[in-house]
Each structure stands twice: as C-alpha cells, then as structure tokens.
Nucleic acid binder design. Sequence first.
DNA 1: ATGAAAGCGCTAACAT
DNA 2: ATGTTAGCGCTTTCAT
Lengths: 332, 332
Amino acid sequence: MSATIYDVAREAGVSMATVSRVVNGNPNVKPTTRKKVSEAIKRLGYRPNAVARGLASKKTTTVGVIIPDISSVYFSELARGIEDIATMYKYNIILCNSDQNKDKEIHLIQTLLGKQVDGIVFMGGKIDLEHIEEFKQSNVPVVLASTVDEQHEIPSVNIDYEQAVFEVISKLIESGNQRIGFINGPVDVPINGKYKLNGYKAALEAQHIPFEESLVIEGDYTYESGKEATAQFLSQEIKPTAIFVDSDEMAIGAIHEIQDEGLRVPEDIEVVSSENTRLVQMVRPTLTSIAEPTYDVGAVAMRLLTKLMNNEKVESITVVLPHRIDVRTSTK
Amino acid sequence: MSATIYDVAREAGVSMATVSRVVNGNPNVKPTTRKKVSEAIKRLGYRPNAVARGLASKKTTTVGVIIPDISSVYFSELARGIEDIATMYKYNIILCNSDQNKDKEIHLIQTLLGKQVDGIVFMGGKIDLEHIEEFKQSNVPVVLASTVDEQHEIPSVNIDYEQAVFEVISKLIESGNQRIGFINGPVDVPINGKYKLNGYKAALEAQHIPFEESLVIEGDYTYESGKEATAQFLSQEIKPTAIFVDSDEMAIGAIHEIQDEGLRVPEDIEVVSSENTRLVQMVRPTLTSIAEPTYDVGAVAMRLLTKLMNNEKVESITVVLPHRIDVRTSTK
DNA sequence: ATGAAAGCGCTAACAT
DNA sequence: ATGTTAGCGCTTTCAT
C-alpha cells in the first residue's frame, strides 16, 4: 500500500493536521516544519488520496460532461474547449456519451451526481421538464453548452441560431436566389425545429418569398443524409439555386451530390453550411459557413460553470456568443 | 443535504449493514426486509455516495483515459470505443488531453492515480522509461491503445503497422509504381519513425527499388501539412506516381494539392491513406486506405483493462488486431 | 438473516 | 504555529 497522511506525519514528527496544511499550501506553517514535511513526503512517495479528500471536504474537483457523441467532429471540438478550461481551473472531467437518448441522459445525470461531481456541463437535444427537475434537485450547478432550455431557467452558452440563419438566408436572397433549400437537423431539437427554422422563415418573409414545405428536409447529420436530401431537391421540377445545410458533413454530401449530377457549385447551386469545423476547407469548393465558435462555446460554458461552483456573481445566466459568416468558395 | 445510508436505515428500521446489502444486491436479505428498505430508499430519494463507497471499498469504478487530442477525428473514434465498453462494464471515464506532451502525460498519470482510478487507458506517442516507471509503481493496470511500448512490458492494443504499410507499398509497386512518396507522421513516435518506415523500406527492398531520402517527408497530421508535403513532391524533377499518407486529413490535403496543380488522382498520381476515418468518403476521389479498426482498438483496450482490473487471466498482454486495405477510387 | 463497530484517508473546527 | 478530535458516508469483518 502507498503511504497515507498519517505515515507522513509520523515520519516528519508532526501531526496529520500539519501535513494537511503543507499539502494544501496553508501559509500557517513555519518554514522549517514545512521543509521537514516536504522531505518526508518525498521520501515516502506520498500522494494525497483524492477520494478521501473528497469525502471530507465535499469537493471532488471533478465535473461531469454529458455529450451526445464524442466521435462527432463538432462535439469533440466543444469537448476540447471544455476540457482545456477545466484543466486551467484544476478540474478533471468525467465524459459520458448520451447519444441524445433521454433515458441515458437522465441516468447519466444520476450517476454523475452519485459520483459527487462539483458541476455538470450538459450537451443534448431537447431539454424537457424531467431534465430540469433533475438539475434543480441536484445541488450542483449545471451549464448547457450549445443546448437551449426554452424556459431559460438553466444557465447556458449558445449563439443566436435564429439570427445566424436569418443572415445567411437573407444574403442568399439578396444575391438573387429565390428558391433556397434547407437541410435541417432533427426538428424535435428546438435549436433546429424552432430557432433555425424560424430564422429561415423570417428571412423569406422579409423578402416576401412564400415558404414552401418541400424546400425543407430533415437530415441526421451524416454525409449520406446530406447527399440524399440533396438528391431529393435535384429531383424537384424547379430545383433550388441555393441550399443551406445544418452540418458540415451533410454539406459535403450536398456538394458531392450536386457534382455527381453534373452541376456546379456555386455556379448552378450555392451551398452554405453551419458548423465551420475543419471540414470546411477539406472539400472543393470550400464551404461558406456560419462560423459558430464551437471551441469557445465549450470553453465559456466551463468557465461559467467554475464561477457557479465558486458562488461567484455572474452577469447573466444565459450567454449568447457572437457568430460570423465565413465566406468561402461554395457561394458566388 | 441528501439522505445518507444511515437515514435510510432508520427510516426502514434496520441497520446500515442491511441497507448496504440491498443496495449492493447481496442475496442474504429476507425479501420482506429488502422491500422495506427499497421503499425507504425511494421515499427519501436516497442515492449512494460513490466517493464514500470508493474510500471504503478502494474501488472507484472509474478509469482514466489519457489521449493526445480528443478533437482529432482519429482519437475521438478511439475514445468512443473506450467509452462504450467502459459503460458496458459500469465504469466511468476521466478524460484528459495530453497533446503528446511528456510532462503533461506524467502529470496526468499522477493526478489520475491520486483520484484512485481503477485503471488507465493511455494513448500517446513515445513511451519511455519514465512512463514505464510511473505505470509500474502505480498499482493499477494500464493498457496502451494505438501506442507501442517497444519493451512489450505494458499491455497494449495495436495493429501490425509495419505489415500494413508493407502491403500497401507492395501493392502500389505491383501496379507499376516505382517512385512512391511517403508522408509520414512525426518520426520521433516509434509507430511512425520505426514500424511504418520499416514497412515502407522493406517493401521497396523486396522489389529491389532503392530507398530515397527525398521521398519521405514528415507531416504533422494537418490538412495543410499534407498539402505542403505534396507540393514538395510535385516540385521534384521526377515526380512520384503514388503517395502513401499517414492520415486522412493529410491525404485530403495531398489530393487537393495534386488537383490544384492540374494533375489527376489516380490517373497521374495515386494516393493511399491510413486511418480510414469517415473522411475517406468525403473527398473526391474517395480515399483508398489502410483500414485500422480504430473504434475496435479502443473497445478492445478497454475490455482488456476490465480483465486486468478483475485479475482475470488474459491470453496475451500484447494484442494485435487485424487490418484490411479498403480500396476506393484514389488508386487505379 | 441481521446488527455492531471498526475503519477507509482526509479536512476542518477547535484547542492550545 | 501546531495538535486533537470529530466526522465525511460507506463497506466489511465479526458476532449473533
């Protein structure tokens, strides 16, 4: 077995309390004894037991992260942002994949609370009453990252999805497009089914273009689904002259489908994406995209969580990060 | 505060020990009392404190995962494999990014051991004596995933990199290529600088083709570095007619550079990659690639770790998974 | 089948 | 500046 604080105390000829003080950097220790203790620690190869410390102090310096799928390019960038800031503030992360499955999500929340995490960063699709219920009676702060709580009760970090889509579609209309396809993500997720769709509709309406059901297709974020949705658009009597796509993978599928059908991007059909992951430059033409600061959303969410865990004041529980539109060669 | 085991005991009119038994599924409990206890648990909303349990039992059902960069497509697929199997065996994962930085790696190992993880899955570049030292005195099992320990002292899961590259290069030679470029990863990592390079050299030698220093360039796994390395090849007096690339992102960079220079893939230059991530189908032409079972490497590594944590017998500490070559349209 | 009691290794008052 | 002493919430013998 490895040495305990008690062994160190004996070895150094002091009490456990003193050892605890030097380990925790408490200034109330005479330099001489501090040195004595430090040497004993080194000699015994003592390493504090964080579990015991967690039980005694009721702090684990560990936070839970619930994410739909870490193997997605988008979410893994978010996760990296979370992790970097967590490290900066000396927290570790317990990472759990939920596959956006509500039962798994609830179960994971409970597991994490059982493990006494000091806070949770949650990424998911739809937040419903059951989630909010769990969060509220959890006693630890929760921050949503790239996930909206329509009630605005839970702290969250997002961009203004509706506005971003509104801008993209408006631009497309201004440059002459009248029929604009929209390959959305799953619409049971409010970000898609509500905010992004609203942005799309609002932009059309502002320019007096009637909304057409057949120009909106729901994809599942895979390359294949982007390709299929685009095939559907291309089979329409009057094809759209531009397509807005909700993910980079689907957008690449869209470009390839268009090209495979002998049409050109952007000459015949313009394509705009909305994740701005590294993928945007890995396709020809390169993808114009809404630039959501993915890494930053994660980083800011984690930073917000640290404040909440420290009971620091925060200006606003709901943070909305700025976005850009990065124009590349898939648009004219 | 939330209820403790003691509260439940009182509520149910039994002892803590009995509550502990029903919580842990110990069969030595009369059905009647089991029911009594279960009801009390429900009534109080009792949730076992995993930290206290960990202190008492010396098991945390948590494993540490050290990974170079979770935002890389390759590693995030590996991580997903690890996480899925961990979940299957009721473990949680503490995920840490090391950026392949040795100091960070050592520090993370110590932090994880301090948190009393039951085991560690380690992914990194070079394993040196200092790592092995830490692993050995750690008292918990460690498994390397997609990472080789040249001494074969630490359990690990890999594919036969040398053989895989040998096959790819041999095929390329058989189909008529005499000058084959190789964009490798950082060569201070043994997998690259030793095994993969050896495979490349061995294939050339087997066909009596002299090795040329100028046909091997070291990249850093980014799209840009793949593009740059390819530009170097294209500027050579006699250009290679095929390029083998050590990552999908770099391979896409290679294809684009070739195309940007007015040449065609595969007609003028064939390209073969070696990660087989989802990216291979997101480029035109689609990428022929060594099919390393990335997800499975993670999954098998975690499975091996569970056996080691349970002191189960394992046939071999060093597992080598089979690989394939997936032929797509970037080769003739 | 159930209970009593001793830790697990540490922190955090409270004394001194 | 340092020591003493309760716990933290649970598991785990050992009795009964």
